[in-house]
Design a binder for these strands. Structure first.
Lengths: 183, 183
DNA sequence: GTCTATAATTTGATAGAC
DNA sequence: GTCTATCAAATTATAGAC
């Protein structure tokens, strides 16, 4: 096996890890499985990520950055609130159709009490950012935080039920319903 | 260790298993941990549940029966729809405050793609029953199934976010919001 | 029904050569 | 950066005694 550019290899490892983790959670990931999927040995994975928690932390942090960035600017003004919430909904729909698997934050959030501390902290940071974006997107209402919690949790739940019932329409109808409400 | 009545022992095992599973999912459960918590040896757990999937299947089936039964009758008439949906919401609030952990269906639903087939089938059966109850509770509307999916998934998502953010109010406000809507 | 003992496999992790 | 080799621990599971 020829050496590869470090950043590419790291991304490859994180791609495969994210894949496995979104299917079965943190414990569904093993160094050997990841290594095999990437085409290297497990000791080489340890070279990049010494401990499993390093791997978990890196994959959720990368996911958070990508997801939040995909939402674009959450301009804090009253105009086009529905458009911005639809962007959020579309991001969830995209994440689902992407791989047919649940949002990474969703599955790791479910397992939070059993995760290593670095990882659970990173998961909570993801949700802090996501809720802050959503509250801002709602245009600075008084109860923006609570509305944001309702919207985000509804999308997450609908996404999870979509995977459980193997029916992506559950999520898309949820997005439709919330976007055509006045929040 | 003195022998115990079989049914009691089985319930003890399922209690502990449910506990562990609600904290970290299917993979967070090990025969040794369960045995230790119950006060027996792992081989004795295997006597009651030969394979791990037997344990998983039994725990979700028991959970489903208890949860659905706690909802009471879902009389199919237009009266008191809000009262019935509030019963459903209260069941979720109860499940959360019960152990401070997520609903078992919720966490196993998230991991569905990686579960043994018996277990994933049992999880889907749980949701089939829950959605059927909710659709009936909505009083036989035309789009009852879709409304039921929205309500159940919103409760599930709010429960999960409550655990993730360590704020039970996220769920209780979600219940309040949906109960005071006209569905 | 529970125990001891043990097998077979998997897992996270490290040392050291190239 | 990747490899070989290896380890200690944990895991699912079974056989057979009591």
């Amino acid at each position: 096996m020829v050496s590869k550019n470090t950043q590419n290899r790291i991304d490859e490892i994180l791609d495969v890890t994210e894949d496995h983790m979104r299917k079965g959670g943190f414990d569904a990931v093993s160094f050997r499985d990841i290594a095999t999927a990437v085409g290297i040995k497990s000791s080489s994975v340890h070279y990049h990520f010494p401990h499993k928690s390093d791997l978990g932390k890196a994959v959720i942090e990368r996911y958070a950055e990508r997801f939040i960035k995909s939402l674009g600017q959450a301009d804090t003004n009253a105009k086009d609130v529905q458009g911005r919430i639809r962007r959020l909904g579309d991001a969830y729909i995209g994440a689902l159709s992407d791989k047919g698997t649940i949002c990474l934050g969703c599955i790791l959030g479910s397992e939070l009490p059993s995760l290593p501390e670095d990882v659970s902290t990173a998961v909570q940071t993801f949700f802090d950012q996501l809720l802050a974006w959503t509250a801002a997107a709602l245009g600075g209402r008084r109860d923006g935080t609570e509305r944001a919690q309702f919207i985000v949790s509804s999308f997450q739940g609908a996404m999870t039920l979509s995977v459980t019932m193997k029916d992506p329409k559950i999520l898309s109808r949820c997005v439709e319903r919330l976007c055509s409400s006045n929040f």
